[in-house]
Design a protein around this nucleic acid. Sequence first.
DNA 1: GCCAACGTTGGC
DNA 2: GCCAACGTTGGC
Length: 155
Amino acid sequence: MPKETKYWLMKSEPSSFSIDDLRAAPRQMTYWDGVRNYQARNFMRDMAIGDHVLFYHSNANPPAIVGIAKVVKTAYPDPTQFDKKDSHYDPDSEPSRPRWDMVDIKLVRKLSHPLTLDHLKKEHKLKGMVLLQKGSRLSVQPVTPQEWAHILSLG
DNA sequence: GCCAACGTTGGC
DNA sequence: GCCAACGTTGGC
């Protein structure tokens, strides 16, 4: 299998973890815990080291792509699923067969100007983006090389 | 705060 | 397997 770099978009609510939090983090890295959606989890399991990530602020004003990151550690069990005190605790997940994974990402750069959802919607070349599909709520989603290139050209 | 769209759960 | 009820997401 040829190794191909893949592209992704990951959503975070800035009130819980923002691009500035990532920038301020040790080594500008973070683990992406709390994903509790099978489709999003499966996408994380598809990630390889070096894959490119768009960092998106959801539930924000305005919602926008605010930075670029890359995958620095592939999927491994998310410990919060076993933590009874954590809001993401999953009593049905067996430690011998963890149900939920996370990856580590590292900041590449924060965009000087966020690319707002409103702006993205106006780009015909981005019409097919998962992010822009009606009712799309996936917190981890694939981005095509063409979409990636176009988004970077906007910045 | 509202609510549409979606995913999950559980009774049958 | 169906589907109503419920919880969550996330734009507005």
